[in-house]
Design a protein around this nucleic acid. Structure first.
Lengths: 213, 213
DNA sequence: CATCCACTAATCAAACTTGACTACTGCCAA
DNA sequence: TTGGCAGTAGTCAAGTTTGATTAGTGGATG
């Protein structure tokens, strides 16, 4: 799974009804173009793809009010909502190295009930620990890690990263269980979208210094 | 840059002369199919692409000695070597979230002189620190981080990851400066390739438990 | 009052990635 | 002796991603 499906489904769902440019704006607001493949081409492609698969409903609309070509609006379907929550749960639960999927999932975590979010993250920690011991058992040769030479440093990096992630996840669980943020069914949700006409402080051209990509 | 260019160039260079299947075997030995897009199709595609760009030289050879279709051998060119070191230095120096490029670079780090490797990694740490302060200044709104709601957790994750990586990099620098591993110009290099006929303990089908991709 | 710029919105070709599939050899067992 | 399996080596079509480009509107500017 690439992060783009989750991102696009989630963004459309938050708006109720959104056109491509709106989705693109939201994802930029999130900084998603920095840490995922949420670039214009991918977003428009994903919208069409998801529509073709019946996860989004397509609405042709009149030429935009603000110049530019006519825009197509999208709305999430029943099936799309199901898929959205499936992807979200999976992304929160399962451990892999893909930073983009994980970041996307954090962005939508409040769409779940608080207790479920915490439970899924605990499941994630279990996954990390299991993966960790599988790697150490599997990749460290019997004759000591020297066998692998500097290649062992790659493994070392993995383990270090996994540990850091486990620590961060524990912190997040604590914050969630401590009552932070507003989750599903807890009243007025926090919506991380741009209001109509609000200017986007983190637009596409935004680059961090030292961010050589 | 995707990691595949660096991986393929480096693997061919280590062998002196290699055919696709050999490169594929090496990268599997490294576990690269787990943490990068080093899958057969991508590898063969990259070989052809690099050959077309003059970074590899192509040699048609007789049908293989061991069954299967005729194999094409590749050799790195002058330009390819240059590109290889350019990619390697860049991957070691610059900070971004792409785990695969970083892992690939660690695998080849010993192709550089020891002092340069350490220097590049120090440069990397500078990059991480710069990025870190840019992010905190830029993304934390003036009115306090609460503004961002749970979206702030994404940033939090980034920072946590960046810190973990800086810590790991410092450790690696210390090991390198402490005399670990054999670097360029220090005699018999450690070669992380499979010898002819050696069986690969980490073949394609290898999956770690809990590794839901 | 023409034209240049900035913004909105989307498209496109080229490159890349994926996973399944082909094709060929040698060997072993029934 | 045949048929099936394991291993070697690579190809292919379908799908995805990228980066550049198109296209329309409105406002500013000389």
């Amino acid at each position: 799974m690439s992060a783009i499906r989750l991102l696009v489904l989630g963004a459309v769902r938050q708006h109720g009804r959104a056109h491509g440019y709106q989705v693109r704006g939201d994802l930029e607001y999130w900084g998603a173009h920095e840490w995922s493949n949420a670039k214009p081409g991918s977003i428009y492609h994903a919208l069409k793809q998801l529509a073709k698969q019946g996860l989004l409903r397509e609405h042709e609309t009149a030429p935009s009010t603000a110049g530019g070509p006519p825009r197509t609006e999208y709305e999430i379907t029943e099936a799309g909502t199901e898929e959205y929550f499936r992807l979200l749960r999976e992304a929160l639960t399962s451990y892999d190295q893909k930073t983009d999927v994980k970041s996307a999932a954090i962005g939508f975590v409040v769409d779940l009930p608080r207790a479920e979010a915490a439970a899924l993250l605990k499941e994630r920690i279990r996954g990390i620990e299991e993966w960790r011991s599988a790697v150490t058992e599997h990749y460290v040769p019997e004759d000591g890690p020297e066998q692998l030479g500097h290649i062992g440093e790659i493994m070392n990096l993995w383990l270090h990263t996994a540990d850091a992630e486990a620590a961060w996840t524990r912190g997040l669980i604590a914050r969630i269980e401590g009552g932070a943020y507003t989750f599903a069914g807890e009243g007025e949700p926090f919506v991380g979208v741009l209001a109509e006409g609000e200017e986007n402080p983190y637009a596409t051209e935004e680059r961090h210094p030292g961010d050589a990509r």
